[in-house]
Design a protein around this nucleic acid. Structure first.
Lengths: 190, 190
DNA sequence: TATTAATTAGAACAAATGTTCTATATAATT
DNA sequence: AATTATATAGAACATTTGTTCTAATTAATA
């Protein structure tokens, strides 16, 4: 069984269990007859940087989790080999910087369509006490989460939709505690 | 140390190590003097569904990973207690259905701005052999990944930008193997 | 206050697990 | 073909780790 094949089996196992197998489970997974063989196979994956040791345990290493990530456009015509990304990225890690104060909210309506936030998208919201003009924020207006851009004209604050069909709402009357948080990201699934 | 406090420490540990601590590490983490105390504490988290057993090991359970997720808008005015989501969601799991054939590509340019794909966004691409008209796809045009909508007019295929300033490209001359895959999602970070 | 329940500690145990060692088979190289 | 290197097997070992048991402490309830 090849190198990449073992790696893929480990990744699939990890996705199912959110944990790596024991050497005995690896023996079965890789179809070896001895778990020491699995031990030596894992050593190579550790050397290659896909896994690492933590005490007596094996945990994911640098290039184990996430998906192949192509950041920059290539110059020249790439052969199929060049299409192999060496970088991997997890969307959770990329998008969520403060996991202990982050929440996800599904967006309803097309009031933010001009900044690329569509109906059904999910926004990544970081709970904060304050927000600055220009930021896209989530406010709790009469029990509903609402996504708007915070703007300041003169000394008045407004909640602006990013869609000319929607009105601009002055923030008077809404207590400051209606702020839920600041939008740090958006995701959409087709 | 409270329930939620322990859970948060475990989540933070898991984010750092992509693995759960041993009972002895938990004893330290929870500031107990005996690891059997940690054992009993974990039993409660297992009963509550945050963790589960797999053989002799403990692995994340249903509501351990991911972020609080607010799917539906609430009716009526919610108190602060109602803002606690019981559902959690991982963005990786939500967006990536076929991890073994998925790649991430950073988008350059604003040619797809009318469907909410902006410059700097990252698209989730599922590698496929074929694509259907109407789908947003990634093609390899002379060594560059390009995001376009596949359209069919009569019996001719076109690569359409979603921005009136860009031309529609007939697919003649591009071999079918230039297809990289179908766009299954988009993410953006502010 | 008295009594019960729940939490924590500490020691001890058993089983699973990681790891090493030796030997054999397979593949690669000279 | 001979030799070296690599991969696999199997047994044995040491330790870690999960788990249980008993006892003491603290909190909750009657």
């Amino acid at each position: 069984m090849t190198y990449e094949n073992q790696l893929q089996k480990l990744r699939n196992y990890y996705r199912r269990n959110n944990d790596l197998p024991t050497y005995d489970e690896m023996r079965e997974l890789f179809q070896y007859k001895s778990k020491s063989t699995a031990f030596y196979a894992i050593n190579k994956l550790i050397t290659a940087g896909f896994l690492k040791r933590k005490g007596h345990k094996i945990i994911p290493g640098k290039n184990f989790l996430g998906m192949p990530y192509f950041q920059s456009v290539k110059a020249g015509f790439p052969g199929p080999a060049e299409e192999e990304a060496n970088d991997r990225m997890s969307l959770d890690q990329y998008l969520i910087e403060k996991p202990n104060s982050t929440m996800l909210i599904k967006v309803k309506g097309d009031s933010m369509i001009n900044v690329g936030i569509n109906d059904g998208d999910i926004v990544i919201v970081e709970r904060t006490a304050n927000a600055n003009p220009g930021q896209i924020i989530v406010v709790n207006l009469e029990g509903e989460f609402t996504v708007k851009t915070l703007r300041k004209t003169g000394r008045k604050f407004f909640l602006d939709a990013e869609n000319p069909e929607y009105p601009s709402l002055p923030l008077d009357g809404y207590a400051s505690h209606s702020l839920v948080g600041v939008v740090k990201g958006v995701v959409r699934k087709y």
